[in-house]
């Protein structure tokens, strides 16, 4: 059987694809960073112009 790095064998012998989980985590990380950057940018702009 070919080796699949994104799969694991559960106790009852079925395969679980972790690719979707990785994608969701990556999308969540990107969104958190985007939001954090926007907030930081707004604070920097407001405090810099005071």
């Amino acid at each position: 059987m070919p080796k699949k790095n994104n799969m694991l064998i559960t106790d009852d012998g079925t395969y679980v694809n972790k690719k979707d989980t990785h994608s969701m985590m990556f999308v969540a990380l990107c969104r958190v960073l985007t939001f954090a950057l926007i907030v930081l940018g707004l604070i920097a702009f407001i405090t810099g112009n005071m």
Partner: peptide
């Protein structure tokens, strides 16, 4: 979705 989220992060 991953690529789109990454594009938005880079543009931001």
């Amino acid at each position: 979705a991953s690529s789109k989220a990454y594009d938005i992060l880079m543009a931001t």
